[in-house]
Amino acid sequence: MEFDGWTLALQAINFLVLVWILQRFLYKPLLGLIDQRQRAQQDAFAQAAEREKAADASRAEYESRRQELDAERQGMLDEARAAIAKETEQGRAAARERANAELASSRSRIEKEREEAAASLTRDAVALAGELAQRLLAGVATADVAGSLLTSVLDRLDALTPERKQALHTDLEQGAKLVVASAPALGDDLRARCVERLRAALGPDTQVEFTTDEALLVGAELRFPNTTIGYCWRDTLAAALEELRKDG
């Protein structure tokens, strides 16, 4: 086996030349391109990171703004609810007051109407009672009853003091007549006894005139010019009805 030193030297030179060629036309351009691509990738990554950061910031800002809006909206809702509740409560209170006022007014009006109705009913009842009483008394009115009542009147006249009797007599001395009103009409016998007792009490010259007054219902009156002495059921009934009205 031969060993050629020239070949070794030439091959070494050849290899070094190849190193230079590959460095010039392969490694340097390719590595430069790779570095350029890596820089482009890094720039792209950096831009992406910046955009991601910006997006995160935007998202955070959006979240913050959304939370603020939520809080604001919640606050507005709370205020609106409170205002509505307040207005509702005020409306309820006003309605309650109006209702109470209307209720009180109604109760007052009803009470007044009830009282008026009761008074009217009482008046009607009293009037009806009076009418019934008048009818009943008219049914039992007889000359005897009237005579009895006239007797009572004459007893009252007799019971008057002499001064009072003198005053009555003085009234009759001026030509006036003593009117004896009765209901129903008195009989002649009763009239005669009446005249006899009047003249006994007031003097023999006493002029007596008899008349019938249905308004008395049952009873008799001695009508002097200035004084009337009588006893009739009309007055009794009127007093009873007045008491009924007062009690009602």
Partner: peptide, 8 residues
């Protein structure tokens, strides 16, 4: 051949 490997 031995020269080339030897050169390398």
């Amino acid at each position: 051949r031995v020269e080339t490997p030897a050169a390398l």
